[in-house]
Design a protein around this nucleic acid. Structure first.
Lengths: 336, 336
DNA sequence: GTGAAAGCGCTAACAG
DNA sequence: CTGTTAGCGCTTTCAC
């Protein structure tokens, strides 16, 4: 492959001049710029990122770590991150943890080997012990997206989780539901804890209580939500409404409803957090509390890029985005 | 950041010894291995991929280029590629073309800058002119997944497209349908051309003809399929069945059916290529011709890794995977 | 404006 | 088995 040296020889200039032309890092006469550009085209020269990164100490690589790219929520994150980063001259490395903390650490290690300039992290756990491991493995600007981790004082971009749960619970209670079950995500993940605690608070504000046996843990997993909802709905004291704290779990509940031939919202009302791309083709079109994930991702990348550029330490600042209640056809007044 | 030099000093050995330990590239006494590993741990040394790549001429990077990661079909590709590559000690760069040929070229350029060791490519076009551009931009082992490109003699892993269309058309005709519309993908993409031509053949084999005005072009786009299906279905001579040549287009047709309040399969039968992850929550559960995308992706990566290792030129060999007809609730005998 | 030269962190060849 | 050394391709002083 052609090197910068070949370009210099071909254009009849010095190596440093070629570099100056490529990077616009020093003034060069128009005539020379043209000669160099011609030479580059003629011999098909392409910069060698690794060499550049090695010498300059800047990889211009951003790592994006998500639980599972197969979840539409996270593939949107990946797509937006790619776009915004590319516009800023960075490339993205998107990797999946599969919700596994060890895998997360392995990926972090790879990101370090690649000397990424920054990290967007959707972590697998939020506890302090995990934060400590994270801090020992991360030495670049990082921003948390959606969830955050104790003792890891990076900036974070999240949904207003409290408001998200309130929106759903208030809606359900307003419809007259009193026996509501909550399908909850992974214990120890901030997203889940905040949503769940907000549910408890929302019930309390109505003088009601969210009983522990009405909280069905499902680890953010579609399958576990299905299993949990199946057991819940097959019992004779089934709830009149279900609130699922994430998109995949909402799908799991829908499947349970369907396989039990229970009508929704006739027999049971259902609402979830996270919107779906084509809700109208679902049976039934589901009411949700949507999060503005595109805007959140853009904000996360911008925040990260800022931090990389400014080289100032993060302060653990949290930016919250407002959720939106979207009413479709999956909830009805109780006893209808 | 610590370098290999620091490790050597700390362990009291030569740099080359450290390298030998890290890469297992030369025999080293157990005692020394331990000392080196301790030193690595103590000072938190992490290999510098860029330096290693520069020196060794091997980036251990694989580029995966897909149309849109937001499409579940392609996010599965990304996920499987990541997994298989990681097991083989490679990292993946997943990038989206957005079905845009210029963007594809831009990505290819970036991949070249990164000196990727190989490429999995789902290209935006299949014509010879595009093939020529591709050949001038690609200088590493490459395998096409799903589609292929004329004049670009790389190995390819695809579905048995002929059989896929036959499965769907034979099924529909067997149900008595005679007026069937086909929602087709992007003209000039091999996948689409092959599926479409196979449709024509399948009709002919039944002594029927697939009229051109029953082929609705929709560029593999959900929105265009929706628009096309809306016009098609609003007309008074609407077809009794629709065959959509990809998952997103199937969704578009479903939305059109729903917004016109047409019953499926009561008024119109619908079948598509590509399976959905939770068909039961769709309204109605859709019958499809599924492709074994996980196995296909694994095969593509293995083929690529083989080629990288063996350093022998690709021969343009095509491996085809069998499609499977999955009957659910979206097709009924005509006139029911 | 241009050119020479040092060196980023690493591998691999070679001499001990 | 260990140590020395020459670059991989590039950026970046610094002298001209």
């Amino acid at each position: 492959m052609a090197t910068i040296k070949d370009v210099a020889r071909r254009a009849g200039v010095a190596i440093s001049t070629v570099s100056a032309v490529i990077n616009r890092s020093a003034p060069v006469s128009d005539d020379v710029i043209l000669r160099v550009q011609d030479a580059i085209r003629e011999i098909g020269y392409v910069q060698h990122s690794a060499a550049k990164a090695l010498r300059s100490g800047n990889s211009r690589l951003i790592g994006v770590i998500v639980p599972d790219i197969t979840n539409p929520h996270f593939s949107t994150v990946a797509r937006v991150a790619e776009k915004v980063c590319m516009e800023a001259g960075y490339m993205t490395f998107v990797y999946n943890t599969g919700e596994d903390a060890d895998q997360e650490m392995r990926i972090l290690q790879m990101m370090r080997m690649q000397r990424v300039a920054g990290l967007i992290l959707i972590s697998t756990r939020s506890d302090a012990a995990h934060g400590a491991r994270l801090m020992s493995e991360i030495n670049v600007p990082t921003v948390f997206l959606g969830s955050y981790v104790e003792e890891a004082p990076f900036d974070m971009i999240t949904l207003d989780e409290d408001r998200a749960s309130h929106l759903a619970v208030d809606y359900l209670l307003g419809l007259g539901h009193r026996d509501v079950a909550v399908i909850s995500g992974r214990a120890g993940v901030s997203t889940n804890e905040e949503r769940l605690n907000a549910c408890r608070r929302a019930f309390a504000e109505h003088g009601l209580e969210l009983r522990d046996d009405r909280i069905i843990p499902a680890n953010f997993s579609q399958q576990q939500a299905y299993d949990g909802a199946l057991a819940l709905l097959a019992a004779k004291d089934r709830p009149t409404a279900i609130f699922a704290l994430s998109n995949m779990m909402t799908i799991g509940v829908m499947r349970a409803l369907l396989s039990l031939k229970l009508s929704c919202p006739g027999d049971v009302s259902l609402i979830g957090i996270d919107d779906f791309e084509w809700p109208e083709i679902m049976n039934p079109p589901i009411s949700v509390v949507a999060q503005p994930i595109v805007a959140m991702t853009e904000c996360a990348i911008r925040t990260l890029l800022d931090q990389i550029t400014s080289k100032k330490d993060p302060v653990g600042h949290r930016t919250m985005f407002p959720p939106e209640l979207i009413i479709r056809a999956s909830c009805a007044p109780v006893g209808r």
